[in-house]
């Protein structure tokens, strides 16, 4: 016997549409379905009924691509900690639940349709400095550039960011600080990132501001919802690098 659910989903035809919440009743949902599979079931029914299916972003469905989103009952990626929406399963909900599903809400993430938002603002932050200008060629010898073990761990923790934007969605200021800080920390801790370290942080923060994201006020909402558990420490590392950059300029 499956679960019976009421979904309240944000429907918005396009960027110009005002949008509204639309309720849907679902029956016979398996607790073993992922959240997105549950939405697939709804969409199959909507298509059979000749209605417009609910648009939502998804790609790998294994928690590594950063495409899936959804604010579920007010929490980006839903109630399960360190889990993307695609890896969230219906067994974490109760039979008879009313589930509200909204898109990421930020001025810098305009809604394209329904639950799909435009996240290219994050790409432009990366373009502003989230890279290393080094010849790539064949893989260098593993021991050619020594990296302290602790730095390697911290850099890797930051590098696990999948760029989904849940940090922005959760932040009371709609700030993209955790996203930006993850990249600044990842590259700033490694030897290959040193030559561009201070120019990078300045350019990325400037682009983050230009995109219209809010400022960070250290509330920590971002790390609480981050599906990859990017540590809050990355933010304080970004702050340190930016202030060093300011002193050097």
């Amino acid at each position: 016997m499956g679960m019976k659910l009421t979904l309240k989903i944000w429907r918005q035809k396009d960027g110009a549409d005002k949008g509204r919440m639309v309720p849907y009743e679902l029956e016979d949902i398996s607790p073993d379905m992922s959240f997105l599979e549950m939405l697939d079931v709804l969409n199959e029914r909507l298509i059979l009924d000749g209605e417009d299916p609910v648009a939502f972003d998804h790609d790998c469905r294994e928690g590594i691509c950063g495409m899936c989103s959804l604010v579920i009952d007010g929490t980006p990626h839903g109630p399960q900690r360190a889990t993307t929406t695609c890896q969230l399963h219906m067994r974490h909900f109760q039979d008879g639940d009313v589930i509200t599903i909204e898109p990421w809400r930020a001025g810098a993430f305009p809604v394209i349709k329904d639950l799909v938002v435009d996240r290219t603002a994050l790409d432009r932050i990366i373009q502003a400095g989230g890279y290393v200008s080094a010849p790539t060629g064949s893989a260098p010898d593993a021991a050619a550039i020594p990296v302290p073990q602790a730095d390697a761990h911290d850099a890797f923790d930051a590098a696990t960011c999948i760029g989904c934007g849940a940090c922005v969605a959760a932040c009371p200021n709609a700030s993209a600080m955790l996203f930006t800080a993850a990249k600044v920390t990842h590259l700033g801790l490694l030897p290959q990132g040193q030559p561009e370290r201070y120019g990078r942080v300045t350019a990325m923060v400037a682009q983050m501001d230009a995109e219209g994201f809010g400022g960070c006020t250290n509330t920590g909402e971002c790390t609480a919802v981050c599906p990859k558990g990017i540590p809050f420490e990355t933010i304080t590392r970004l702050n340190a690098d930016l202030l060093t950059a300011a002193r050097r300029s």
Binding site: K8, W10, M21, V71, D73, G74, T75, T100, E102, R105, A106, G107, A108, P172, N173, A174, S175, G212, F213, G214, G215, T217
Partner: peptide, 14 residues
């Protein structure tokens, strides 16, 4: 800046 950064608010706040 924070106010401008989220023009549409969430229907549900946890």
């Amino acid at each position: 800046r924070a106010r401008r950064a989220r023009p549409v608010r969430y229907a549900v706040r946890p």
